[in-house]
């Protein structure tokens, strides 16, 4: 049973602006029936270029219907430039909140809106925003099950400050079916946040206690957390890991046993091993695969 807010239930039970606008200025359809949700929005502008009508049709669960309904309310009265700034976070904020597993419903709302704006621009011969263009045509498909591109993953991750593959699944569905792309998603996230950190070095480079420790002290601390928190979890699946080296804030870990062959070993490394070390030793520790 989902813990939906009153606002979600209200928009689900009494959806606003259902249907299709007559003679629309912009139309967009995102999602598809295979994936389990889809949304079609139609938009009409008034003489001042403001959205005077916005209607939706949605195939999906309660949160998909509520997200669509609240989106239409949000954008009516906005110019297209204003509407272009609406994100899935705005949709979630207006609904109170959504369960983490349902975040993709709000992302679908945002995508439909952006696609509709792009549709309007195309109809009027205007240049289309790079990101929307990318998503439609140039992104590389990462998740084959749900057809999610790397461009979309980066975009949603940046907008919502997402760091783990699991979060990407909740927000975009990517990796939620067969799971074979989870490693790839994690790699995309790692390089994304690495780039970001390098772009703004001062802010992130605060002195951490861990850095001032001697190598031996670092090894003792890291090793004890690995023995206590990490290995028992891996052993349940017939896996194991070993600390190979520590240089600066980077711990080099080798995956062993079943973990070595596991297609999700990079996810395990980042989510479990790095997660535990960040939690129990220092948030600055980065884990790298020593096997590579």
């Amino acid at each position: 049973m989902w813990d939906y807010t009153k606002k979600v239930m209200d928009h689900f039970l009494n959806p606003r602006n259902v249907g299709e606008v007559q003679e629309p200025d912009a139309v967009a359809e995102v999602g598809n029936i295979t994936c389990g949700d889809a949304l079609k929005i139609t938009i009409k502008l008034d003489d001042e270029g403001k959205i005077c009508e916005c209607k939706f049709k949605t195939f999906g669960c309660a949160s998909a219907i509520a997200s669509s309904s609240v989106l239409t309310e949000l954008v009516i009265g906005m110019t297209l430039d204003e509407a272009a700034k609406v994100t899935n976070k705005d949709i979630v904020a207006h609904l109170g909140t959504l369960p983490e597993e349902k975040m993709h419903c709000s992302v679908m709302g945002m995508e439909a809106l952006q696609a509709a704006i792009a549709d309007y621009k195309k109809r009027h011969g205007e240049a289309v925003d790079e990101i929307v263009e990318d998503e439609d045509h140039e992104g590389r498909i990462v998740c084959r099950c749900f057809g999610i591109t790397d461009v979309k993953i980066r975009k949603v991750a940046k907008e919502n400050d997402l760091h783990s593959a699991e979060q990407i699944t909740q927000y975009t569905k990517a990796g939620g079916a067969c799971g074979t792309c989870l490693d790839q998603i994690q790699t995309i996230l790692d390089s994304l946040w690495k780039e970001k950190a390098e772009a703004a070095p001062e802010a992130e480079q605060e002195k951490d206690d861990f850095e001032s420790l001697s190598v031996v002290q670092k090894v003792i601390k890291v090793q004890s957390v690995i023995d206590r928190e990490v290995r028992p979890v891996l052993e349940r699946d017939g896996g194991d890991c070993e600390l190979v080296d520590i240089q600066g804030n980077t711990a080099y870990i080798k995956m062993k046993g079943h973990c070595q062959m596991c297609p999700a070993s990079q996810v395990t490394l980042k989510n479990l091993v790095q997660g535990k070390l960040n939690e129990f030793v220092s948030p600055k520790i980065i884990v790298e695969d020593a096997g590579k």
Partner: peptide, 22 residues
């Protein structure tokens, strides 16, 4: 349905039977 459980795919039984996604 997928959405009721939080998983993203519909029932494994219906999929095994080849019930169309629609």
């Amino acid at each position: 349905s997928a959405c009721t459980t939080g998983s993203l795919e519909p029932s494994h039984v219906l999929r095994a039977m080849g019930v169309p996604y629609t």
